[in-house]
C-alpha cells in the first residue's frame, strides 16, 4: 500500500548556511495518526515546510501518496492541508473570506466551497465571528480560522504544526474530537506538539526529531511504555536529562 507520506534523506540548508534538517527519513502509512516531536529548532517545522512547498528541500525525496512533492507539486498539494504554527493570514480579511479564498486556490467551485465553509464555520463555532476581520479576533478564534482554512479542501493528509499552542481547553477538546473523528474516517494526520499528553492521547505512532534527524521512532505504546513514559523517552532521545537522572 502506498504510504501517505514518505520522506527519504531530506536535507535542508538555508541560504544563511544553517542546516535545519540534516538527514531525515520517515514513512507514514495511510490512515495513521502520527506524532512528530522534538525540541524547538529540531527541524520539525522546516520538514513540514518542505513537504508543503513553503520551503525548497536542498536534497532528498518527499512523496505524498506516491506523488513527488517537488516534481509534481500541484498534484501533491491537492492532497494536503496545512495548519501552520504562525498565523500567515491577511489581517484585514474576514474569517469567511480567508477560508473561501483557500478553497478557491484549491479549485473548488462556488457551491462546493459554500457547503464546506458553512460546515467548518459551524464546526469550529465561528458563526458569530465569520464577518470579523482576522486582526480583531482573539488568539483562540484565530487558531480556529486557520484550522478551518487547512481543512477546506477536505485533505487526505492533514499536517498540524502545534495547532493547540496557546488555545483554551474548550478548543483543544473540540479539536481533539474532530481530529479523532476524521482520522477514523480515513484521513492521515501528522501532528507536532509540545504537549506530550496531547500526543499520547491522539497519536498511534511517534517520531522524535533532534538536530535534523529522527532519533527515535515507534508506536506510542512502545515509546510511552518504556520506564518514565513518553516524557522520559523524549528527554533521553533528544539528549536532555530525564528527571530521575537530573534529581540524583
Amino acid at each position: 500500500m502506498t504510504p501517505a507520506l514518505s520522506i527519504s534523506h531530506l536535507r535542508k540548508v538555508y541560504r544563511s548556511g544553517t542546516v535545519a534538517v540534516e538527514d531525515l527519513s520517515l514513512t507514514i502509512p495511510e490512515g495513521e495518526f502520527f506524532g512528530f516531536l522534538g525540541p524547538n529548532g529540531a527541524g520539525k517545522s522546516t520538514t513540514i515546510h518542505c513537504i508543503t512547498g513553503v520551503a525548497e528541500p536542498s536534497s532528498g525525496k518527499i512523496e505524498i501518496f506516491g506523488i513527488d512533492a517537488v516534481k509534481n507539486y500541484r498534484e501533491a498539494r491537492r492532497l494536503v492541508g496545512l495548519c501552520p504554527q504562525e498565523f500567515n493570514v491577511d489581517p484585514f480579511a474576514n474569517a469567511r473570506q480567508i477560508v473561501d479564498w483557500m478553497g478557491g486556490y484549491f479549485g473548488m467551485g462556488a457551491r462546493e466551497r459554500k457547503e464546506r465553509i458553512d460546515y467548518l464555520i459551524e464546526r469550529f463555532d465561528l458563526i458569530p465571528h465569520q464577518k470579523k476581520q482576522f486582526r480583531e479576533l482573539s488568539g483562540g478564534l484565530k487558531r480556529r480560522v486557520v484550522l478551518a482554512r487547512a481543512l477546506i479542501n477536505d485533505p487526505k493528509l492533514i499536517i498540524l504544526d502545534e495547532p493547540t499552542a496557546g488555545v483554551d481547553v474548550e478548543l483543544r477538546r473540540v479539536l481533539w474530537r474532530y481530529l479523532t473523528e476524521i482520522n477514523k474516517d480515513g484521513r492521515t494526520i501528522l501532528l507536532t506538539s509540545h504537549y506530550l499528553e496531547e500526543v499520547e492521547r491522539l497519536c498511534r505512532h511517534v517520531a522524535i526529531v533532534s538536530k535534523g534527524r529522527v532519533v527515535r521512532e515507534g508506536t506510542k505504546d512502545e515509546i510511552a511504555g518504556s520506564p518514565g513514559g513518553l516524557e522520559n523517552a523524549y528527554l533521553i532521545a533528544t539528549g536532555a536529562e530525564p528527571d530521575h537522572v537530573a534529581g540524583q
Binding site: 512547498g53 513553503v54 500541484r74 498534484e75 498539494r77 484549491f106
Partner: peptide, 8 residues
Amino acid sequence: EEMLVAPL
C-alpha cells in the same frame, strides 16, 4: 504561503 501550499 497560502498560494505556495495550493495547487497553483
